[in-house]
Design a protein around this nucleic acid. Structure first.
Lengths: 353, 353
DNA sequence: CTGTTAGCGCCTTCAA
DNA sequence: TTGAAGGCGCTAACAG
């Protein structure tokens, strides 16, 4: 029989009214020292904790933030949620966590679930922040929300992110500086990540500035099994005019690509250089270490929650906050000249027979 | 002005009473087809979603599960939370997520927060499942909960875990079979992980069975910076009678140890073999790949939630569910004989001058 | 300074 | 098959 201790129980025990108990709990009005002492004693003895439900029903406000992300299995999102959790706890709030598993169609339903719980606000990473009916709905109902990782094209939407295009541009320039001329761009499905698309823009800009051909992106399903990657990559890296480097739209994809290349007998970085995006911790631990764009993932989560509170409490206007990034050099990105030593890799099972 | 649409609004629009609307929503009693149609139309037009708060206050039950873990940054917990989330969603529940950041003192407070939200039940990973006042409290208030990763010594407590001792025992045997005789056990602080302690038991059992000396565990703070590890490890691996292998109580610690050893000029596995525990994905991606115990982390999260629902709905008695594990061989664990080729590593800055 | 009271949104008897 | 009414735990007016 849980929670039979209500504010009324406490009032009886302390010999006062429930209003007084409430006042003691919330310090919402002055109370005599004597009564307060009795109330506090009663609370302790009974182990009473005010029900958030009752409170919420009255005030129509909960101490809960809704969170929507693609997946917890991606360390990027795990890290930012960790940041959110820390920031929320600072404000005595808790997170209501949901994940779409990269299914954009799930977004609407999950957000509705969160809204039905009367969350004070939302922090979300959606597949695409533009023309997003779910976000429009939140706006219409004036439920405050902040995007993380997404980089909206309008400043009218609150977001915490990095300048994806600039970062990828810088990374591409580093690859060009290392002597690479033929650089492939490998992406997760654009439909599930607008970041991926923005990053492609940065790559293209850098290539064009250098007078090089920006290749059309190869979209890979990075949740797919390695074999499917291997087939696609065998085609791309099979010929003599194969790229000497691959820029992947995120770190997880980069890891998967490196594994697939290894299975194909293509060495990284001796045959092909690989770089990622995000800066997950594991990229540092592996060897060769992963060249990537270092992104303050955890901080992004913290800032998102802080920005959200600002909007909730002071009604601050939404704004986009772009956090600094940095290039992380790594063993997977080598000078292109090295590749001249490459013996033609045994081309295993070309994609079409 | 969010959520001004209440059940009353719908009733007015549909020209019936709120009771009828409630009945249509919950199918809790038969309603005429005609009225039902009108109600559904009104609901759609108004975009009405019943407030979970109102519902919860009435029934004293929410569709929310409380989750407490040490940290989301550890992929082990991220994976199991991902499993919980999936299983919870299946039952139309959401997760209220909290993390202690490995501070056992935070457990009580966070659990209270969750309980105050009237969660239907809890899934938690605590520092130590024995003599835990917080768990006793939950039991006393008969709030259903399931432990994950923790392996309680009594069957009276619900838990989903692996047989930590057996697993570590098997891993130790594999190391012995590889020719290692002097095997160190490196652990995170026992105070923050009873798993770590159980795993040590397994190690000791295997060593004793083989007639070898089980060394006292070296407790490392694996949240600490690498330098602190280096100092401790320099002492352990400095001498001539240094261990040829190190068994780490978890994968994250193993990664950290490998990095520290590398900084000390000690090669893995040429000079020292290293193995971990958990089977995080990144262990596969790195090279040499991490030898470890493969643990069905995500599944553990799923099973924990399913077991929790069983307890909530059918009042099933708590039970311990031990999931299967498997040894994962990896490049960090090599035959001991190899080590004979080891040149004495440059002993960098011994711990005491 | 303290008590009484009216709801917040919903579900659920009890009548009709 | 439907409506009226009470109450879940709490906060906030309003009295006193």
């Amino acid at each position: 029989m849980p929670r039979i201790v209500t504010i009324r129980t406490v009032a009886e025990r302390a010999g006062c009214s429930i209003a007084t108990v409430s006042r003691v709990i919330n310090r919402s009005a002055p109370t005599s020292a004597e009564v307060e002492a009795r109330v506090r004693a009663a609370i302790d003895e009974l182990g009473f904790r005010p029900s958030e439900i009752g409170r919420a029903l009255k005030t129509l406000k909960t101490r809960t933030l809704g969170v929507l992300i693609p997946s917890l299995t991606n360390p990027v999102f795990a890290a930012s949620v960790a940041g959110m959790q820390a920031a929320a706890r600072e404000r005595r709030h808790t997170l209501l966590l949901t994940a779409t598993d990269y299914d954009p169609a799930a977004e609407a339903e999950l957000v509705e679930t969160l809204v039905a719980q009367n969350v004070a606000g939302l922090v979300l990473t959606v597949a695409c922040a533009e023309n997003n009916a779910t976000l429009d709905l939140l706006e219409a109902e004036s439920i405050p929300f902040v995007l993380v990782h997404n980089e909206p094209d309008t400043d009218a939407r609150a977001a915490v992110c990095v300048d994806n295009a600039a970062a990828t541009c810088a990374l591409t320039e580093a690859m060009i500086a290392a002597g690479h001329r033929n650089i492939a761009y490998l992406a997760g499905r654009f439909a599930t990540s607008d970041r991926s698309l923005r990053r492609y823009e940065g790559y293209r800009a850098a290539m064009e500035t250098a007078g090089l051909d920006a290749v059309a992106p190869l979209e890979l399903d990075y949740l797919g099994d390695a074999p499917s990657h291997a087939a696609a990559l065998a085609g791309l890296f099979g010929g003599l005019s194969a790229p000497t480097a691959a820029l992947c739209s995120n770190d997880l994809l980069a890891l998967s690509v490196i594994g697939a290349l290894r299975d194909l007998g293509i060495r990284v970085p001796d045959d092909v250089s690989v770089a990622g995006f995000d800066g997950i911790a594991l990229g540092r631990a592996m060897s060769p270490s992963l060249a990537t764009v270092d992104t303050p993932t955890r901080l992004m989560g913290e800032r998102a929650v802080e920005l959200l509170f600002e909007m909730i409490e002071t009604g601050a206007a939404p704004r986009v906050e772009r956090l600094p990034f940095s290039l992380r050099s790594g063993g997977t990105l080598a000078a292109a000249s090295k590749r001249t030593r490459r013996q033609e890799p045994t081309p295993p099972t070309p994609p079409n027979p």
